[in-house]
Nucleic acid binder design. Structure first.
Lengths: 169, 169
DNA sequence: ATAGCAAATGTTATAATATAACGTAACATA
DNA sequence: TATGTTACGTTATATTATAACATTTGCTAT
């Protein structure tokens, strides 16, 4: 039995990947056009690969994909694209995994908090106001000026817990 | 002028390093004795070096220190000690820096949240109940079981901001 | 004390992640 | 189309971390 009792940002197993990837790429194209920055073929493809995987993916995994596609790529190729995508807020880096994941709200001001499921490998991006304000509040109290935040919570998502229960009877 | 208006976990510039290191090592010794695990010479020395630096320190920095001291050390030497110290809660790993820092509350159950100053390089360990409960609350709402949390906020601490202001007049 | 075992460390090699430096190609625009 | 800038290709190397196996150390039971 599949539980729907929890609202979650984890994509359901049966959602339409293709539409979801296409939509992300559309948004990215609009955003880059609006900003006057160039979402080149390579950058576009890298972003597409990241979204297609639908979970945090390593730089060298991407490199391998490109190589399989006949693109003669070396590490700098991929890291430069990743830098561009990071700088333009189109992807996030998951520090605890050394991996990269598509940003769900490119162009919008948002906190990037991640719940990462070790079972399915998926990362849900949140913008929880209470987490955000608790952090900002603490920073204010100690007079700390925030530049970057890394909020990554690892564990097991509701779907995967259900599946584990199902398997065990 | 030095500001004291902010309560903070950042050690003041004039605090007594030596006492602070000694105290951390004492605690570590008691803790290991109580747990029946062995804080060997090597592990003790690694922990001492981490505390002495008083900011997050990289594995290869530690390695270099040991080498300078005449210890013929290779990477596994240091990583094994780091693993031991991590597993026993005597240090934390700062994912956003690939670096290790002494734990301020070994043996106690606590959230490990870090505010990391890019200017002085120091990392303040917090246990802010509101941050913690905001995260736990969100996890509950989405049915997520938490295993590990990485909460790292980078920026500039109050002391360093004061100093920057002083320099600029 | 010492034989035997487990834990810790030494040693060599290599994996995984990331960047430096410099040359070439593509693109924008005057 | 000349010109400058941005992106990309290419080679080399830096940085962080682990695998695999040999040796030593220290604990425990006799």
């Amino acid at each position: 039995m599949k539980s729907n009792k929890h609202p979650t940002n984890f994509p359901s197993a049966d959602h339409d990947h293709r539409r979801c990837v296409a939509s992300a790429l559309d948004k990215a194209e609009s955003y880059c056009a609006a900003q006057g920055v160039r979402l080149t073929k390579l950058r576009h493809r890298v972003l597409e690969l990241i979204w297609a995987s639908h979970r945090p993916v390593g730089a060298y995994d991407l490199l391998q994909q490109l190589t399989l596609e006949g693109h003669k790529a070396a590490p700098p190729t991929i890291y430069r694209s990743l830098d561009f995508l990071l700088n333009n807020g189109l992807i996030h880096r998951i520090n605890s995994l050394n991996a990269y994941v598509g940003c769900e709200h490119p162009g919008l001001d948002h906190a990037a908090q991640f719940f990462i499921c070790g079972a399915c490998g998926q990362a849900a991006e949140l913008d929880d106001a209470r987490i955000e304000s608790a952090i900002i509040g603490h920073a204010k109290r100690i007079g700390f000026t925030i530049e970057r935040k890394t909020i990554e919570v690892s564990g097991t998502c509701a779907n995967c817990q259900d599946q584990q229960r199902d398997r065990q009877g």
